[in-house]
Computed example of a mutant assay.
Amino acid sequence: MEINIQLKSLADKINQLKTKIETEESTKHAFVLPFIHILGYDAFNPLEVVPEFTADLGLKKGEKVDYAIFQNGEPIIIVECKSWKEKLTVHNSQLFRYFHVTKTRFALLTNGITYQFFTDLDDQNKMDEKPFLEFDITNLKENTINEIAKFHKANFDVNNIVSNASSLKYIKEIKKQINAELESPSNEFTRHFAGKVYTGRLTEKVVDEFKDLVQKSVSQYINDKINDRLNAALTKETIKQQDEEIVIVEDDTKTITTEEELDAYRIVVAILRRKLPTNRIVHRDTQSYFGILLDDNNRKPLCRLHLNGGKKYISLFNENKSETKLPISSIDDVYQYEKELLETVALYETDKA
């Protein structure tokens, strides 16, 4: 099962059960362990997942992290869990102390709903105070799912994740700054735009007046972009539906094979039966033409007859299967193309040999 489907299933489970989960221990078993399982690790295999992990390196007696995920005998992720009702705070966390005394590069702080992944971007072997990846498992976006997938047992690559962690961390912080500016534009942000459109002196009063204008302008711009995308998507969907309707109409229209078409088929059979048994010469009627095939194989057209329009035509095929459309006055003219029809059969039979 794909990881996005598994995560969606876990999110649904969390939304259904969380009001029944009262303790940290219940949170671990109902929410956190299933997440670890989704990452491909066996929570019941002590070689992969160690509960109540203790690093025997002079730490306070009895101090542990909830889980350590192992690979090749070394911890690769240490996990600290809280009750789903608790807000996450990394201060005073055991993760800080365990991070620098193990070989792990990743620490996970979670309450089963919010997940915070940490590494050591600022100082090597010292856990950062801010996570490089944070998400609410009940509200995942596609790009976040892609990042989660990198922690899967089958994909886990320390260097790849760490090299990308810096970008994730700064993108996250920049997005926070953008959001803050959109909610309440700072003087610096306001001056940037006001200075490009206002020709007078940017006094404090002018800047204050422009704050509201900048906020409205940005909001309207974002709404316009969203509407443009929605309209484009709706237009594409409308075209798609129209195309589907056209296909449906075409499929439902029954093709009627005329007696003239069957007579033409009999003429072709009469020409080719000296080279082929009649059961290998098959007709297939369509709305556009009446086709005659070798072995009922549409890759082996013998000819096509266009008899239902104002003018009649026969289509013949050369060694490259290129179609040549020739006018005929009646189906009796098919006899004139005996040579071409026999040559087409010979080409297919030669290829078969």
Score class of each variant (00 low, 15 high):
residue 215 Q to M: 14
residue 333 D to L: 10
residue 160 N to T: 11
residue 167 S to I: 06
residue 338 E to M: 02
residue 300 K to R: 11
residue 302 L to T: 09
residue 242 Q to Y: 06
residue 26 S to F: 09
residue 22 E to T: 13
residue 295 D to A: 11
residue 320 N to P: 01
residue 23 T to R: 12
residue 59 L to K: 08
residue 352 K to N: 12
residue 110 T to H: 06
residue 330 S to N: 10
residue 136 D to A: 07
residue 325 K to D: 04
residue 48 E to M: 04
residue 209 E to G: 11
residue 192 H to F: 15
residue 127 M to R: 08
residue 27 T to M: 05
residue 152 H to C: 11
residue 266 R to I: 00
residue 3 I to S: 07
residue 4 N to G: 00
residue 123 D to P: 00
residue 92 N to D: 07
residue 308 N to W: 03
residue 185 P to Y: 01
residue 28 K to N: 13
residue 5 I to T: 12
residue 89 T to P: 00
residue 164 N to A: 13
residue 228 D to Y: 11
residue 231 N to H: 12
residue 326 L to C: 01
residue 231 N to K: 15
residue 261 E to S: 08
residue 156 F to K: 08
residue 92 N to L: 01
residue 258 T to P: 04
residue 237 E to I: 08
residue 126 K to V: 14
residue 275 K to P: 00
residue 19 T to G: 02
residue 188 E to W: 00
residue 34 P to R: 02
residue 81 C to K: 08
residue 272 L to Y: 07
residue 34 P to D: 05
residue 251 D to Y: 07
residue 165 A to G: 04
residue 274 R to E: 14
residue 336 Q to F: 14
residue 39 L to T: 03
residue 307 L to K: 05
residue 55 A to V: 13
residue 109 L to F: 04
residue 103 K to Q: 13
residue 44 F to M: 09
residue 319 E to T: 14
residue 279 N to Y: 11
residue 344 T to R: 15
residue 108 L to C: 05
residue 341 L to F: 02
residue 129 E to R: 15
residue 171 I to V: 08
residue 56 D to F: 10
residue 181 E to I: 05
residue 232 A to S: 14
residue 99 F to L: 13
residue 276 L to S: 10
residue 185 P to M: 02
residue 282 V to C: 10
residue 158 V to Y: 14
residue 308 N to F: 02
residue 107 A to T: 00
residue 252 D to E: 14
residue 167 S to N: 11
residue 147 E to V: 11
residue 106 F to G: 03
residue 120 D to I: 05
residue 293 L to I: 02
residue 342 L to T: 10
residue 313 Y to I: 03
residue 161 I to D: 05
residue 191 R to W: 01
residue 61 K to E: 15
residue 121 L to R: 13
residue 91 H to S: 12
residue 73 G to I: 09
residue 200 G to Y: 12
residue 11 A to L: 07
residue 87 K to G: 10
residue 224 D to P: 00
residue 44 F to A: 05
residue 42 D to R: 04
residue 222 I to H: 04
residue 103 K to G: 05
residue 76 I to S: 08
residue 349 E to K: 12
residue 281 I to G: 09
residue 82 K to V: 02
residue 346 A to P: 01
residue 259 E to R: 09
residue 83 S to C: 15
residue 228 D to V: 06
residue 62 G to I: 09
residue 301 P to S: 10
residue 1 M to I: 09
